[in-house]
């Protein structure tokens, strides 16, 4: 039976099998590259050696034999390496719960728990409705505030037109002067009236 290694895939973001396959292919590619390089060197050396009877075809044959041999060795070793990596590295122990799955720790055990979950969902729905209502109410108040502030600023602006906070410039002083002056005039008038009598 296949173990699909789903939890490991969730954690790593790739399947362990794909990972091993990629490693295998990488090794294979490298082996092939090395063989090609080695063959080139041998060809060069063979052609430069005096009295060499080695042909390119012979060298190619040997290279292919060597490659086959290396491949077989590698495949055997890789089986062991794959086992170790899958068991010890690309593996999540069965008792481990990933942090992202903490909400599933207490999986609903039956009808009761499911019923509780449904109640919770309904409560959340009501809370959301209330919050949305609050948002509309707050936005409405902001609109009313704008209108009210504009009206109040208009009134203040009207007061500005009348003059500063103590009335039109100098009104207070002028009034005080007039009253003082009137007081003096009154006493002078009384004085003159008496003297003229």
């Amino acid at each position: 039976s296949i173990n699909p290694l789903l939890y490991e895939t969730q954690f790593f973001g790739f399947t362990p099998q794909t990972c091993m396959l990629r490693i295998y292919i990488a090794f294979q590619d490298y082996l092939f590259e090395v063989m090609v390089a080695v063959e080139k060197v041998i060809l060069k050396k063979a052609s430069s050696l005096p009295g060499s009877t080695l042909s390119a075809v012979q060298i190619r044959g040997s290279t292919e034999t060597f490659l086959r041999f290396m491949r077989e060795r590698f495949n055997r070793l890789f089986v062991k390496m794959e086992q170790v990596l899958l068991q010890l590295v690309l593996n999540i122990p069965p008792n481990i719960l990933l942090p992202e799955d903490r909400s599933h720790e207490k999986y609903p055990q039956g009808r009761e728990d499911f019923h509780l979950l449904q109640q919770e969902v309904e409560q959340l729905r009501l809370r959301y409705k209330a919050e949305l209502g609050a948002k509309h109410a707050l936005l409405a108040e902001l609109e009313v505030q704008k209108v009210t502030q504009a009206r109040l600023k208009k009134t203040l602006h009207w007061f500005d037109g009348l003059g500063d906070a103590h009335g039109p410039l100098g009104l207070g002083e002028m009034m005080a002067f007039l009253i003082q002056h009137s007081g003096r005039l009154r006493s002078i008038t009384q004085d003159v009236t008496q003297k003229s009598k």
């Binding site: 902001l142 502030q149 203040l156």
Partner: peptide, 25 residues
């Protein structure tokens, strides 16, 4: 809503300030 509420409170404060200024005048 928390952000909106902050704006509303600020607006209420401004309205109150304007009212007080008008009263003073």
């Amino acid at each position: 809503n928390v952000k909106l509420a902050e704006m509303v409170l600020e607006g209420r404060k401004q309205v109150l300030e304007l009212q007080q200024q008008i009263q003073a005048r």
